[in-house]
C-alpha cells in the first residue's frame, strides 16, 4: 500500500512541479536577454486562465483532434510511472523500462502530430511533418544515451541501467560524452532553440507550436501542461541515466534523497535554459548533423564502455 502511495505521490508531484520548472526556465532566459521577465509562477496563472476560456474547434476536425489533449497527458502520466523519479517507481512488481519510456514519448508525439494534421490547415501539416523528421532523428539519439549502460548491463530496465551506471569502469568519460549528447537530445526533445523556438509563432521556424495552433482554452491548457510535464520527464531521465547519483545520493539519509533529486532536476533545467540562451536557431536541414552528433557521441561512449569492460 505504501508503495502505491509513493507511486501516486511522485506522479502527482511531477505534474504539479512541471509548470514551476517551466517558469524557472523562462525566468533564466529573460535574465539572459536583459529583460525582467514574468514571475516564477506565471505558467500556473496562464494554465488557470486558459482553463476558464472558451473552447474552439476547427471546422472539419474529427474526434482525434478533440481527444488528443487528454490522451497525450495520460500517456505522459503513464511515462512518469515508467521512470525512476523520487523513489524507485510504481506500479509494484515492475520497476520501469527505458524502451517503454521512449515508446510512450513516441506515442505522445504520434497523437499530437495526428491532431496537427486533423486541423486541415497548412500550419498543422507543416508542424506535423517537421516534428516527424525531428522525432525520427531524436529517437536513435535518445536510445543512444542509454547505450553504454545497456551494453554494460545487457538489459533495458531502469534498475539495471542505473546499477551499471554506478559501477561502470570508465564511467567518468562516458558521463562526460553522455552529458554533451544529452544536452542536444534534451534541447531537441523539449523543442528548444537550436531545434525549435517555443516563443514564436512565425511559420517559417515553428515546429511544435504549429501543431498546437488550433487549440484554445482548456484543450490548450492540457497540451501545454503535457509539454511541460514531458520537459521535466526528459530532465529526470537524463539525471537517472547520466548523473553519478542517479535518483538520489545513496550516502544521504533516505529522507533527504528526494531533495537532491529535486535539486538535480532544477539544476538541469537551468542548464537547459542557459544553453538555449547561448545558441541561435539552426536551419531546419542542418538538424540531422546536429542531432547525429549527439548519437555519434553516445555511440563513442558506448564503445569506450564496452572496450573498458571486457
Amino acid at each position: 500500500m505504501a508503495v502505491w502511495a509513493q507511486a501516486l505521490a511522485q506522479t502527482a508531484l511531477v505534474l504539479v512541479l512541471a509548470p514551476l520548472v517551466q517558469g524557472m526556465l523562462q525566468r533564466i532566459k529573460a535574465v539572459a536577454q536583459h529583460r525582467h521577465g514574468p514571475g516564477l509562477l506565471q505558467p500556473y496563472f496562464t494554465l488557470a486562465k486558459l482553463w476558464r476560456r472558451q473552447d474552439l474547434r476547427p471546422r472539419g476536425s474529427s474526434w482525434v483532434f478533440a481527444a488528443t489533449p487528454c490522451f497525450v497527458l495520460a500517456v505522459l502520466l503513464a511515462a512518469s510511472a515508467a521512470l525512476p523519479l523520487l523513489w524507485t517507481p510504481a506500479p509494484p512488481g515492475w520497476s520501469g523500462d527505458f524502451v517503454f519510456f521512449v515508446g510512450l514519448l513516441a506515442l505522445e508525439r504520434f497523437a499530437l502530430s495526428l491532431a496537427g494534421l486533423d486541423t486541415g490547415t497548412p500550419f498543422g501539416g507543416l508542424g506535423s511533418s517537421r516534428d516527424a523528421v525531428v522525432a525520427a532523428l531524436v529517437e536513435p539519439a535518445l536510445f543512444a544515451l542509454a547505450l553504454p549502460w545497456m551494453a554494460a548491463a545487457g538489459g533495458t530496465g531502469w534498475p539495471a541501467l542505473m546499477a551499471a551506471s554506478a559501477s561502470a569502469p570508465a564511467a567518468g568519460v562516458v558521463r562526460f560524452f553522455g552529458l554533451a549528447a544529452a544536452l542536444i537530445v534534451a534541447l531537441a526533445e523539449t523543442g528548444r532553440v537550436p531545434v525549435d523556438n517555443p516563443d514564436t509563432h512565425l511559420e517559417l521556424t515553428m515546429i511544435h507550436e504549429a501543431m498546437l495552433l488550433e487549440y484554445s482554452g482548456p484543450q490548450l491548457a492540457l497540451v501545454s501542461l503535457a509539454q511541460m510535464l514531458k520537459q521535466l520527464l526528459v530532465l529526470a531521465a537524463v539525471a537517472d541515466l547520466l548523473l553519478p547519483w542517479g535518483a538520489g545520493w545513496t550516502v544521504l539519509p533516505a529522507v533527504l534523497r528526494p531533495l537532491t533529486v529535486l535539486g538535480t532536476w532544477f539544476g538541469l533545467g537551468a542548464g537547459l535554459a542557459v544553453a538555449e540562451s547561448l545558441s541561435a536557431k539552426l536551419r531546419f536541414f542542418r538538424l540531422p548533423a546536429y542531432v547525429g552528433a549527439a548519437t555519434a557521441l553516445s555511440l563513442a561512449a558506448a564503445v569506450l564502455e564496452v572496450w573498458g569492460g571486457r
Binding site: G60, S61, S62, V64, F65, V102, A106, R109, F110, S113, L114, G116, L117, D118, T119, G120, G124, G125, S128, A132, V133, A135, A136, L137, V138, E139, P140, L142, F143, A144, L147, M150, A151, T295, L299, A302, V303, V306
Partner: peptide
Amino acid sequence: GLIGVLVLALTAGLVAACFLKVGGVALLGR
C-alpha cells in the same frame, strides 16, 4: 548489437512518421 539498436531505433522513428502520414493524410483533415 549496439549498431543494431541504433538502426532499429531510427527505423522505429521513420515508421512512426510513415504511418502518421497514412493516418493523418488519409483519415484526418478535409
